[in-house]
Simulated scan of single mutants.
Amino acid sequence: MTTTTSRSGPTTPLPAVDVLVIGGGAAGLAGATTLARARQSVLVVDAGSPRNAPADGVHSFLGHEGRSPAELLALGRRELASYGGRIVEGCAVTARQEADSTVEVALEDGRRLRARRLLVTTGLRDELPDVPGLDARFGRDVLHCPFCHGWEVRDRRVVVLASSPAGVHRGLLWRQWTDDVTLIDQGGLAAAGDDLDPLAARGVGVLRGPAIGLAIEDDILTGVRLADGRVVPCDALVAHERMVARSPVLDALGIHAEPIEAFGVDIGEVYPSDATGATSVPGVWLAGNVTDPMAQVITAAAAGVRAGAAIIADVVAEQTARAVSRQAG
């Protein structure tokens, strides 16, 4: 199997590969490796901006506990290369499906790639509350997922910013890792009504906000500053509002993001797919956070494998139909 990433010209299309994978994270590399092992020519387009890049380590991934995200992806790249898969650095900006169902994808730098099938694994973007300083510390001591970071802050002081009734769920969830949890009401808890009672029952305090900044000493988070001048001490801050997937490639192909809700609250947008990752457009599959916002790294990788297997099933069905047609002819 050979796949070229030649730069013979900014608008020169490459020969069509069997499968083009857009997104070089866990889902994309796992899917690409599955496809390469099934003797497909595979090209991965990687923009180099994985969602978990700020995290110290990957957790609950069997055999890779605590491994840095960058190291995990480097291992995945080497494994893909060992089966003949290739990676090209770039950002996909649009796409179109040709008459023969081949998909042509344009990169930001003008290069064009063609493939018989497409797997999109571009993840999503985390939207944080509008509080100065959160972005710079996200993934360090500004957190969003207790399954990713809870163990690391166990028995520490955890503050949760609550801007909707979903904050009640977050407060109760983080209570599993520590008995020192405080919710700061950013103005959205009133709608929760009697649902606040479980917080009191579990010893989770609620303070009226809003939070307007962070207290930092020697590059260590020590507290959250409130509008009334108080500083609430903490070792970790849970701050998360929405999860938004955006793919100009999928939009161009007529696949559009749909809103998702939890606890009656809008928590983001992702692109729809079925259980195998198949979309409403034939020949286009999804895997990972672009379609499943709750997927952790191991879940995203598994989804990539599942989508890869579904693509192979589609390839086999097409090849078999052609063989039967030829025999009948």
Score class of each variant (00 low, 15 high):
Glu108Met: 08
Trp174Pro: 12
Met243Gly: 13
Leu43Thr: 05
Val238Thr: 08
Thr12Trp: 00
Arg116His: 15
Ala257Thr: 10
Val265Phe: 12
Val270Ile: 15
Thr12Met: 06
Leu72Phe: 14
Gly187Cys: 10
Glu261Cys: 07
Ala313Leu: 09
Asp194Val: 14
His256Ala: 15
Ser325Glu: 14
Val224Pro: 10
Pro248Gly: 06
Ala252Lys: 08
His144Gly: 09
Ala30Lys: 02
Tyr271Gln: 03
Pro54Phe: 06
Ser101His: 12
Ala74Lys: 12
Val93Cys: 04
Gly63Tyr: 06
Val45Ser: 07
Pro15Glu: 13
Ser49Val: 13
Gly304Ser: 03
Asn52Trp: 04
Ile220Arg: 14
Asp292Tyr: 01
Asp141Met: 10
Gly57Pro: 13
Asn52Arg: 03
Gly329Pro: 00
Leu250Gly: 03
Leu75Ser: 10
Tyr271Val: 07
Gly193His: 03
Ala47Pro: 02
Leu134Glu: 06
Gly28Ser: 05
Glu258Lys: 08
Thr122Gly: 02
Gly283Cys: 09
Ile87Tyr: 01
Met294Arg: 11
Asn52Tyr: 06
Ile267Cys: 07
Ser101Gln: 15
Val231Ala: 10
Gly24Lys: 00
Ile311Met: 13
Cys145Asp: 12
Phe138Ser: 09
Leu107Asp: 04
Pro210Thr: 02
Val168Asn: 03
Ala27Asn: 02
Asn52Thr: 11
Leu214Gln: 05
Ala201Trp: 02
Gly171Val: 06
Gly264Asp: 10
